[in-house]
Nucleic acid binder design. Structure first.
Lengths: 217, 217
DNA sequence: GCCGAACCGTAACGTACGGTACGGCGCTCG
DNA sequence: CGAGCGCCGTACCGTACGTTACGGTTCGGC
């Protein structure tokens, strides 16, 4: 998770220097919240504002590029659909839950979601769509094949994969994301995340596991 | 909405005129997003900016008063703990789920949560705490007695009411709130909300219902 | 060495907006 | 009926910030 393997889109069109600038903008966004100014980015990245405008057009362009740049860094390798037995399926689900909880509780994710939410309220919905696409919908895209494989192997029972995924999403995330976005202090230790991942997975299996399988929880 | 039932806090300290001003601010917040300016509020409410500053101190004070004013309007009557049989417990849970989904999908809630999220990112966390207190935590305060009553009546089994509540919260809300906050078009018809409420309740009962109860879904 | 391109640092401009001051108006009270 | 007061409308001020412009520097190519 979170490895920076050379990706398809951004690494081609963005020079090394531009990536450094976007990293600076990202750090600033995490530190100072939505208080990001062009002057601050230029100072932090040791570049001129003229260059910022030449590269990214305007402030929204810089913001969008920053969000997409971060998104391109968190692409994860899709799991192979070899989740044949219950143990590996359970492990996959727990791993997804664990990774997801780590992502949404990270400072970076919180900062990016905050700015995207604020942006969604002000007309142009670019940032919100980008965050959603690389967050919730990407998670669904990764997870659905696992669910389908589990159903095909007779381990899961559901009619609509989308509905099953959304239930899993709710069981994992619960109130965590909205509380963090609203500024609630909510310490999420590694152990707590791991425990939540196990609990959510067991609850999901209790709801969607095949009748023959073991009924956890 | 906007009935003048004498409330605890706000109706005493706020005059009729002040409430009208806050309603104007609230409408503006819903319409224009976070683009709320003091001049716009003054114009919409047909009052002077000087009056706004005299009454609410500064922009943050106006924002906080607006959020609290809206919060004071959505107080619901707490259900009585007479949920003795499974039918009435199920009905109570469904009703909570239904009401909650209606709240978080309303334009007002979305606008308020957006501004609170943005505010939480910029130092002062007042708004986020207020929204959280009147949203998630208020819901917990209403719902936990119901859950405890259900456990006492032998209908539910759980060790930690907080954990049970959070699971219910996740099953009901799933990805709805974050998607709406991020600007996702997500039409929630009355029928869809009702169906989701029933589904979430059945799933919750499947996870936490006493073994003698019916195993839905 | 010279040229042009890219870029850094900074100054400057325009605008939006939070906050303040002031004149005028209607209302209440003596 | 005059005084005082609360409030409306508006002009005004200061600042922050997006955006542009410009002088100076580095660097690759001829």
């Amino acid at each position: 998770m979170l490895q920076a393997h050379a990706d398809t889109n951004n690494s081609e069109t963005l020079t090394e220097r531009q990536q450094a600038v976007l990293d600076a903008a990202l750090r600033l966004l995490v530190e100072d919240g939505d208080h990001l100014t062009m002057t601050a980015v230029a100072r932090r990245a040791s570049c001129s504002k003229e260059t910022l405008y030449k590269w990214f057009g305007d402030r929204d362009g810089l913001l969008t590029a920053t969000v997409q740049w971060q998104a391109s860094k968190v692409r994860v390798a899709s799991v192979d659909g070899k989740g044949l037995d219950l143990a590996s399926l359970t492990a996959s689900l727990e791993r997804f839950a664990c990774d997801w909880l780590k992502v949404i509780s990270s400072d970076t994710s919180i900062a990016l979601n905050r700015v995207a939410v604020g942006h969604a309220g002000s007309g142009k919905d670019n940032l919100g769509a980008v965050v959603l696409e690389n967050g919730r919908f990407a998670l669904a895209k990764w997870l659905k094949p696992v669910l389908e494989a589990g159903r095909h192997a007779g381990l899961l029972e559901f009619t609509d994969a989308e509905m099953a995924f959304r239930t899993f999403f709710g069981l994992v995330g619960r109130d965590v994301q909205i509380r963090l976005l609203l500024g609630d202090r909510l310490e999420l230790t590694e152990a707590a995340i791991g425990g939540d991942a196990i609990r959510a997975t067991q609850q999901f299996l209790a709801l969607f596991g095949a009748k023959t399988g073991p009924r956890g929880l």
